[in-house]
Design a protein around this nucleic acid. Structure first.
Lengths: 165, 165
DNA sequence: CGAGAATAGTTTGATATCAATCAATTATGG
DNA sequence: CCATAATTGATTGATATCAAACTATTCTCG
């Protein structure tokens, strides 16, 4: 930083790391679907995490419990595919829910490698509290989206997100 | 479960935790924007994390570095707003990037509470490698979206996600 | 049947994420 | 000017996330 020192000699043959052109920054900021998806996911996650906080549930735990509450009896790997999670993340999430008493883990009788998570009574009970909360909050989200984009685009949102996943 | 035992007496006045109706499960599975956003975000995050892995960057670190590469000199809180992150997450992310030598943290001369992250030469250099990779990969994402939804919906995708955030 | 490949899940280690709480600094009202 | 409130970040603790490496089990085919 002393102007009597000789001109800097770049370490390789590279130019000395100029800032990106403004157009490039704007292109990424405004068009990057990955960034946009992370932002939307974080905002919505926080919103539903706060909604479910009085129950001691997170949005992800709610989704996992819902997935198990129908007739579907997935193995852990199938659950990971459905949630678009890494299998190791599902292992960890199920462990937390097991500690909370909402889920138990059964070994498959056909194939000893396979394990299937199963809702407990406590799991079903907390869902009966959570579902009406979800319904009310989600109606608000839909209304806000309608106001911002119009009903048509709002309906496309779910389809778009499914296509991205 | 023994039919000679007396009828179960629910702990409270509640019904003994019946499974959710199938229609409810399907409603949440197919319409919940939060779940859909998490899925899309995880898939895209994994995709760009793998893309940038040879550089030792994650998708989130890339986005943060891009945000700092233009003329914008945000304080940490402003950066958190832009990324829709919790401020404490930004503190943690910047710490990692500082350890990697890509960012430095400057105290503001006007207000001693304020700190502003700043790209280092190494940060600018790695961006020059990462941006072409991003461009190529993102073109593939766009093409896949075009094929699935048509060009029009694909072009609106970023706008829709911004509305969600 | 038996050896090697494939599959299912777990463990470990690193980063990401956020709520709750704390410390430092600045602004405001009396 | 001082006491209090508001602002800005940092720290802590818990869960989430995924890559890499591992164990256990099942499959395949010679």
């Amino acid at each position: 930083m002393d102007d009597t020192s000789p001109p800097a000699i770049p370490t390789h043959g590279d130019a000395p790391a100029a800032p990106l052109p403004v157009a490039t920054v704007l292109e990424i900021r405004d068009r990057c679907l990955c960034l946009a998806a992370q932002r939307a996911a974080r905002r919505l996650a926080r919103r539903f995490d706060r909604l479910f906080a009085p129950l001691g549930l997170t949005n992800g735990q709610f989704s996992l419990l819902v997935a198990l509450s129908g007739g579907w009896k997935p193995r852990l790997g199938e659950l990971a595919d459905f949630l678009a999670m890494d299998p190791t993340t599902v292992t960890a999430s199920v462990k937390t829910l097991r500690r909370g008493g909402f889920v138990e883990l059964m070994s498959d009788t056909e194939d000893a490698r396979v394990r299937r998570p199963k809702l407990t009574d406590a799991g079903r009970a907390i869902l009966q509290e959570a579902v009406p909360m979800w319904r009310a909050e989600h109606a608000r989200v839909d209304a806000e989206l309608d106001a911002e984009l119009g009903a048509e685009a709002a309906r496309d949102a779910a389809r778009l997100l499914r296509a991205l996943a």
